[in-house]
Nucleic acid binder design. Structure first.
Length: 846
RNA sequence: GCCCGGAUGGUGAAAUCGGCAGACACAGCGGACUUAAAAUCCGCAGACCCUUAUCAGGUCGUGGGGGUUCAAGUCCCCCUCCGGGCACCA
């Protein structure tokens, strides 16, 4: 061999040694794809504890964004870690595949929604595989396919049977141009998104509802037990449910049989009521309007103001207006006549749509009374500070009633109970509880959703819709449909769909043409994962009961209310149907922060979107996902900086170089013994075991994977620093083997491709993700010496080295013997010496 | 208005129980290697002051102000700003 050729060969070999994610990652991806059992959950008899790790399923928009990458990187690290900790892990993925974007895409690109959606699913699945995510694809759920949505229909029938699904009139956004109902997101600035000049109307339409309010109290009380959920989410749900204790009180309308029932949380202030205020849509308002044209016009105006405010989301800022109806109501507590008004700030859909107005003790009533010069009457005196006589006075816990008949002198809170009970005993009221939570409107006048399995038969059931029989399910969504027509209900135009046979009389009947809200799909999909192929039931109860509750649910905080409340509701309904035993779907919930770029959320309109594909192409999937975990703690917002990904990539290539270089050494099976190790070997083992302890602790606790990864970097820095010692043979092969194997195992949850590659290179047995997670050895992790900072009057003077676990006296004398310390305290009196063993010494001198 | 987060170097951040503020990175600067560059490796790095400079030393410093403590990014009180949620819910 000539002297010219040799360096060339060496160069080629060193090129081959270099870290190349574009070679490593596809290689492992192919191997993993070929092994369906790799990420498959084991049977209930596996003898292992179960762990259900779940990330929120995405909408198949066609491409993953960085928010997904972050979400799945967290879930994947956790799932892999739990496998290594010996759990039987269920880690599934699916597609929230119904919804409006598919219809929009169909309009725009002339592609049928189903085709568009399934193509997107396929594309995103490729991306997920490229990411190296450990999903068990055998349990995949796609909500737009009949084998899934038939069970939506089945649940609908069960809910109908139980009275949990019902119809009522409700307000919808109606575009007169489209002749159809719009979702809230399709209303832009009060106008139709497709017809920018067309003002959206509020129409009353008969719609299907799920009676979630039946579970309001349980949903509220259950929150107290959800200790594994962020307090923020629990608070948001509490506010959303909005439980409010109060009383109903009947005011009779003077000179008629009519009465107005008001809801109040402050029945104790009723002697201060100086008017009754009705919502414009209150039945009594409407009745008065019929008798008086002038009044009717004014009430309509008030209603118009309220509608406008509702549309522009400015209900809270509405300027209060009202009109006196000319009628009076009788306060049942004191027989007093008070005027009845109609006001634009009274909501028809909360409480009874009517209130008693107590200007002296309610800020809103106060504002209104001032504007219209209505009388105010103080009926509460603050106990604590009687000088505070400014109105309105809204305190209650320390206050007493005045000028309130037989209740004068009572404490407000006590009076509330007594007066409500009194009203009940006299038959003009009752204590009650109201909720802000409303029943869940599930009707959507859209095409791409689950058909509601009900029919209308004019012959045998002209007033009541009839459920189709279970055996007819699924009611298939017609695939051949002209989506480009925008007028009217899409399904209503498909004759083959609409025309049905009446399940009762067998005659001609019409099918319901509304489809279900897509939140139905996502309310129970995670149960289907446990038995995704079941064709006779939504899932097998034994299977669900084995896996549930979800041990860890991970997703964005934007779902804190709707999805997570509907899911909790659905779980309770299924429990009451006898399908499952658990009361709550998820034991623990984690909400990750947003991914931002240049200080703003990534969005097309801002042009600051970073494509995961591009990152993977440039730096590899390992570096991309590891950066997503490294750049910030997972619960905080993350600023995407490509230089950071490059940094992680450099780090991974250092790991690759080190492990590859010493891989042959790792074949040694002996366990290292500390006593025979050189100081370099001891330092490496110490650092390894400290790192194991830290990362294990991070997984068990705060999930601050940014610091987990930084501790791996520290370990790698330590190995690099000892490289010459290793090359000189000063570190035993067994110690090197332990350190490098440990490093690879610690890396596995964060950089699975590289970990698999290195594991193979060093001749590791079996699959790295099924290898026992390393256990920290406290003896090996312990430091021999610790550095103790010495302060004088709280200011750092020097650091002294003492043997680890030295007692107070030793530390103290070491501190007092230090030259710098002596110089500093010279000529002064040491008043006090504070020694915190293992932490610091502080000398207080004068 | 109410509730929940957050504010730390040029940047992302760390400090888990009140005990060395800035770990680990990014960007930057200097050096080695190279004909050169890239890559890689080594080193420096909160601000300011004193010192010709070095060595060393000093002062200040975790949004602002007060407090508790031997000791405060961390605890208490008040305030500012940013983000999120709720909002005439009677």
């Amino acid at each position: 061999m000539s002297g010219i050729e040799k360096p060339a060969i060496e160069k080629i070999e060193s090129e081959k040694q270099r870290y190349s994610p574009s070679e490593i990652e596809p290689k492992w991806q192919t191997r993993w794809d070929a092994d369906a059992s790799l990420y498959a959950a084991e049977g209930h008899d596996s003898g292992k504890p179960k762990y259900y790790c779940l990330e929120m399923l995405p909408y198949p928009s066609g491409a993953l964004h960085m928010g997904h990458v972050r979400n799945y990187a967290i879930g994947d690290a956790l799932a892999r870690h739990m496998w290594m900790r010996g759990f039987n892990v269920l880690h599934p993925m699916g597609w929230d595949a119904f919804g409006l974007p598919a219809e929009n895409a169909a309009l725009k690109n002339k592609v049928p929604p189903r085709q568009w959606t399934l193509a997107n699913v396929a594309a995103m699945k490729v991306q997920m595989r490229r990411m190296g995510l450990s999903y068990d694809w055998s349990t995949e759920v796609t909500t737009c396919l009949p084998d899934y949505y038939r069970w939506n229909q089945w649940f609908f029938l069960k809910m109908f049977e139980k009275g949990l699904a019902y119809r009522k009139k409700s307000k919808v956004n109606w575009c007169p141009e489209c002749q159809t109902v719009l979702a809230n997101e399709q209303v832009v600035g009060g106008c139709c998104w497709r017809h920018e000049d067309t003002v959206v109307e509020q129409r009353d339409l008969t719609q299907w509802f799920f009676r979630i309010t039946r579970y309001a109290d349980e949903l509220l009380q259950g929150l107290d037990k959800l200790e594994g959920w962020p307090e923020k989410v629990r608070t948001m749900q509490r506010n959303w449910i909005g439980r409010s204790e109060g009383a109903l009180v009947d005011f009779s309308v003077a000179g008629s049989d009519a009465k107005v029932t008001v809801f109040t949380t402050r029945v104790d202030t009723i002697f201060g009521a100086t008017s009754v205020q009705l919502a414009p849509e209150h039945a009594v308002s409407k009745a008065f309007a019929l008798e008086d044209d002038a009044l009717r016009i004014q009430i309509e105006e008030l209603l118009e103001q309220q509608k406008k405010a509702r549309e522009t989301d400015a209900l809270g800022a509405i300027e209060k207006h009202g009109v006196f109806t000319g009628r009076y109501a009788i306060n049942p507590f004191n027989g007093e006549r008070v005027p009845i008004w109609v006001a634009n700030y009274i909501l028809a859909d909360y409480g009874t749509g009517a209130i008693m107005s107590v200007p002296a003790h309610d800020e809103r009533d106060f504002e209104f009374a001032q504007k219209y010069a209505l009388p105010m009457r103080r009926v509460i005196a603050p106990n604590v500070d009687t000088n505070d006589l400014a109105l309105p006075y809204t305190g209650e816990d320390e206050a007493v009633l005045i000028d309130s008949g037989e209740w004068t002198g009572e404490n407000c809170l006590e009076a509330q109970e007594k007066m409500a009970a009194f009203a009940k005993s006299k038959g003009f009221g009752t204590p009650t509880v109201t909720y802000r939570l409303k029943d869940w409107g599930v009707s959507r006048q859209r095409y791409w959703g689950t058909p509601i399995p009900m029919v209308y038969c004019d012959t045998c059931s002209p007033d009541e819709p009839l459920p189709v029989s279970e055996s007819e399910l699924p009611i298939l969504l017609p695939e051949q449909i002209d989506i480009t027509q925008t007028n009217g209900s899409p399904l209503g135009r498909v004759a083959e769909f609409v025309n049905a046979k009446c399940p009762r009389c067998g005659g001609a009947a019409r099918r319901e043409t509304d489809t279900m809200d897509t939140f139905v799909d996502s309310s129970w999909y995670f149960y289907r994962y446990t038995d995704a192929k079941n064709s006779t039931a939504p899932f097998d109860s034994d299977k669900a009961n084995y896996w549930f509750p979800i041990d860890q649910y991970i997703g964005g905080v934007e779902h804190a209310i709707l999805h997570l409340i509907y899911s909790r509701f659905w779980t309770k309904v299924m429990r009451d149907l006898g399908l499952i035993n658990n009361d709550e779907p998820a034991e623990r919930l984690f909400t990750q922060g947003m991914v931002i770029k240049d200080g703003a959320k990534m969005s097309k309109s801002k042009g600051n979107v970073v494509s995961p594909d591009l990152m993977i192409e440039r730096y590899g999937a390992d570096a991309t996902r590891m950066y997503a975990l490294f750049a910030a703690p997972p619960d905080r917002d993350l600023e995407w900086q490509e230089e950071g990904v490059a940094g992680i990539s450099r780090f991974l290539s250092r790991v690759h170089r080190l492990v590859t270089k010493y891989a042959a050494t790792c074949a040694t099976p002996n366990a290292p013994s500390e006593s025979s190790e050189t100081s370099a070997g001891q330092a490496l083992l110490r650092r390894l075991h400290q790192t194991i302890a830290k990362i294990t602790h991070d997984f068990d606790g705060r999930w601050h994977f940014n610091t987990s990864i930084s501790s791996i970097m520290i370990l790698v820095n330590e190995i690099t620093a000892n490289e010459s010692a290793m090359d000189a043979g000063e570190v035993s092969p067994s110690a090197m083997a332990e350190v490098l194997r440990g490093l690879t195992l610690l890396l596995a949850p964060f950089a699975p491709f590289l970990a698999a590659e290195l594991w193979e290179t060093m001749g590791g047995n079996g699959v790295v993700f099924r290898t026992q997670w390393p256990i920290a050895n406290e003896d090996l992790a312990r430091e021999d010496e610790v550095e103790i900072p010495v302060q004088v009057n709280g200011k750092l003077v020097n650091v002294v080295k003492v043997p680890a676990e030295s007692d107070e006296a030793t530390v103290k004398s070491a501190a007092l013997a230090d030259a710098k310390v002596i110089a500093r305290i010279e000529g002064k009196t040491v008043v006090k010496v504070i020694v915190v063993p293992g932490k610091l010494v502080n000398l207080v001198v004068k």
